[in-house]
Amino acid sequence: MANEQTYLEEVKLAIIDGDDKASAVATRDALQADVDPLAILNDGLMAGADVVGQRFERGIFFLPQLMLTGRALKAAMAIIEPRLQERYAEDGGNKADTGVVVMATVKTDIHDIGKNIVASMLTASGFQVHDLGVDVPIKRIIATAQEVNANLIGCSALLTTSMPFMRDLVDLLVAMGERQRFKVMVGGASVTPEFAEKIGADGTAQNAVKAVQLAQRLIRAQREQIGVSVR
């Protein structure tokens, strides 16, 4: 009988191969063999996603592989999610640095490659991503964030003439009294840390890998804030 490491390797390989059917089968097999769901997540799925992310950064993998990996992760997560929830409940809700993200390219802008890469990388890192696509009115972004109880809103604009709509989003959150509820990440070729700060967003990142790190930091900060307020 295969040992735990073998099951985890199968999961990891399926993710690296971007094979959604194989990742679902491998995840199910691992669970049936009583492998810890957290180990499957971290040492199988995330470990595979890390490899894909590194290969993407080094120019060995390209966007299709990233998208296929995102798909494979989604298939595996659908199987493992209920078990993870049980596991997190057992741990007292000490969930990893992931959360729910609503992403969109803002109203009037239809450029989505950067946003798609970030969405794929976030998914690959265990975030639950609701990608609303392109040219999305800010009211819809906020409404979706409320509906899915998001931790984070990520919005993007490549066009300098669409960037003002990201400021509108932050302003509207403030006006609605919802600013503290959601962390806001902004991105796009012309978006700088200065711009992010100026419009009152919580941050921006230069690339997808850094965007994931930023999202993780923001989620941690949010959980700490909540922890403090609860105490």
């Binding site: 109203k107 009037t108 802008d109 066009l159 003439t161 669409s162 003002p164 709509f165």
Partner: peptide, 10 residues
């Protein structure tokens, strides 16, 4: 005034 996409200012 900043130029916004789909705005008459375009």
């Amino acid at each position: 005034r900043e130029v916004r996409t789909e705005d008459p200012i375009e």
